[in-house]
Design a protein around this nucleic acid. Sequence first.
DNA 1: TTACACCTTTGAGTTGACTCTAAGTCAAGT
DNA 2: ACTTGACTTAGAGTCAACTCAAAGGTGTAA
Lengths: 143, 143
Amino acid sequence: MNIKEAAERTGLSAHTIRFYERSGLFPKIKRSKNGIREFRDSDVNFLIFMATLKKTGMSLEDISEFTKDGCILERLEAGEMPKEPVRNRLSILMDHRNKLLEQQRNIELFINAVTQKISFYESYIEGTDNKEAEDFKDGRNKV
Amino acid sequence: MNIKEAAERTGLSAHTIRFYERSGLFPKIKRSKNGIREFRDSDVNFLIFMATLKKTGMSLEDISEFTKDGCILERLEAGEMPKEPVRNRLSILMDHRNKLLEQQRNIELFINAVTQKISFYESYIEGTDNKEAEDFKDGRNKV
DNA sequence: TTACACCTTTGAGTTGACTCTAAGTCAAGT
DNA sequence: ACTTGACTTAGAGTCAACTCAAAGGTGTAA
């Protein structure tokens, strides 16, 4: 498929995909004889995974560290993959998973904080008294 | 307290705090007679709340929309706060909470995806067979 | 009094991540 | 043959969010 369809499927713009390739964020895409990129399903899946790494806060630099050894799976299946790059990927992914778990905890805490603030403002607008809101006003949250 | 201590307590740099004030991200901090910012605990709490909004993905622009009516609580207590700005804050917070809930769902999905990839790479390194890893290799994840 | 460690300002520089422009190629349709 | 709409490149431009620099003020301590 061409870059336009790949863009549609990944939710990235064609511009962005070219920019990513130039920046070494993923292995070079195969070209047709006139130099046009021909995306396979697996390329698109790779892009989608990268985009998800991105969405969950990984920097492009870290992503290119992750992808620098190219498409590992094909070589794994061919039995010609050294273990070192695989270990490298593994440690990047494990670090990222730890970050995600922390993010998950933070989000939960913050949802609670926001919910408290919401119920405080709500009770003000409704003119009702609200125990939670009163607690909230104890000076730790003068906003 | 001075800006240095406020920086330590909030985890922001003094530079960043000045930059935030300049950008209208929070109500101007009171100054001593020689123009030095004097932070109260409530200012620091406000900053921490803002920093958390930031950490959970709110843009500075949206944060300043949130804070543009200044320190509401003081005026609420004095009974001199119109309801409109409170409604405005409420709707910003509710939008943000929705985003957070979505983020929470996405992170969970992605933790699962990463965990699968991790167990695939692990089983490769250990040279063991792994049903999950085999499923994973079905062509949807050629990475 | 001199040194030091703070503080202040404005404006410029940096970084990351796009996003677009200009100038051009190529293939298919009318 | 010509138009249309894809594609290509290198390099420039944009935007958010800092981050720093220069030049100077203030207050305490030896």
